[in-house]
Simulated assay, not measured.
Amino acid sequence: MNALVDLLSDMATLDGGAVESCLKGVRFFKDSKPVRRRPMLYNPGICIVASGYKIGHLGGRSFRYDADNYLVTSVAMPFESETHPGEDEPLLGMFIDIDMTQLVDLISQMELQTEVAKVTANDFPLGVGPSVMNADMKDAAVKLLKALRSEREAKILAPGFVREIYYRALCGGQAQVLYSLVKGSGSFAQVARVINMMEGEYSKKLDVEQLAEAANMSVSAFHKAFKEVTADSPLQYLKKIRLARAKDLMVQQNMKAYLAADQVGYESPSQFSREFKRYFGRSPAEIMRETRSA
Rank of each mutant, 00 (worst) to 15 (best):
A175F: 09
A147E: 07
R38M: 09
L170Y: 03
Y179F: 15
I48N: 04
Q109T: 06
Y279K: 05
A158G: 15
L178F: 09
G25W: 06
I48F: 12
V132E: 02
Q113C: 01
I48S: 01
G172N: 03
L249F: 08
F222L: 14
V72E: 05
D31F: 15
N43D: 13
L126D: 02
K146D: 01
I107D: 08
S293V: 11
H84K: 14
V251Y: 03
N43G: 12
G129P: 03
L58W: 00
Y258Q: 12
K240M: 11
Y42I: 01
D232S: 13
L249P: 02
G184E: 03
D105L: 10
S62N: 04
L178G: 10
H57E: 06
N216E: 14
N43E: 14
I165P: 12
V182N: 04
G281D: 01
G16F: 03
P90D: 07
T13V: 15
D123H: 12
E153K: 11
P159M: 02
N216S: 14
S268M: 04
K204Y: 12
G173Y: 00
M40I: 05
F124N: 09
D10S: 09
A154C: 14
N254H: 11
D66R: 10
F124Q: 09
Q174F: 04
V116A: 02
L41M: 11
D6A: 07
V128C: 12
P234R: 05
T73D: 04
L41Y: 01
A141I: 07
M94A: 13
A260P: 03
T83F: 06
P34T: 09
G16C: 09
E82I: 02
F226I: 04
L7W: 01
A260Y: 01
F276I: 06
K204C: 11
S270G: 04
S62K: 10
G93H: 04
D31T: 11
D232V: 01
D136I: 02
I241M: 01
P90M: 05
G173H: 03
P125G: 09
N43V: 06
P159S: 07
S9G: 15
